[in-house]
Design a protein around this nucleic acid. Structure first.
Length: 160
DNA sequence: GCCAACGTTGGC
DNA sequence: GCCAACGTTGGC
């Protein structure tokens, strides 16, 4: 089983949206990056777990956990001119972009902010905390995964 | 809102 | 194949 981290902007689609879906399940569409496409295609497996990360928000950070529930399949939103991420170079006979289905598991007990992740020596190798990183989906090692789950149980400095 | 970093596009 | 221009991401 592999571990992942997946970013989304909460104003557009946050973890509460996923949790409210039927079965807590929705496809992760709109990926238009070849590295991510290839990860979906070659490495994503049902049963993998992923952190849900909120980006482009006041306190960016990890907010919850979800599970991969499908293998990669064509992202149909690329075929529709009315879609924001329409790509005329992708068509149903030769789909360029893929998506996977994700299922909500749980919120973390607290948000783990990016600032805290960056301050953590054990996580210094994560792509998330490295300069100029722009990948919206990235692998997480088992060690990093477990370390973050331990951080979840820490008291935050202002907890009193 | 600003802007650094990065990926993609397309002219040559 | 090079590289400037452009668009996007995403922290701050």
């Amino acid at each position: 089983m592999a571990y992942w981290l997946m970013k989304s902007e909460p104003d557009v689609y946050g973890i509460d949206h996923l949790a409210a879906e039927p079965d807590g399940t929705e496809h992760w569409d709109g990926i238009r990056n070849y590295q991510v496409r290839n990860m979906f295609r070659d490495r994503f497996q049902p049963g993998d777990q992923a952190f849900f990360y909120h980006s482009n928000t006041r306190v960016p950070g990890i907010v919850g956990i979800m599970e991969v529930v499908s293998e990669a399949y064509p992202d149909h939103t690329a075929f529709d001119p009315d879609e924001k991420y329409y790509d005329p170079k992708s068509d149903p006979d030769n789909p360029r972009w893929l998506m996977v289905d994700m299922r909500y598991i749980r919120h973390l007990d607290r948000i783990i902010p990016l600032s805290e992740l960056k301050a953590e020596p054990a996580l210094s190798e994560m792509r998330l905390v490295q300069r100029g990183n722009r990948l919206s989906v990235m692998p997480v090692t088992e060690v990093e995964w477990n370390h973050i789950l331990e951080m979840e149980q820490r008291d935050t400095p202002d907890d009193g």
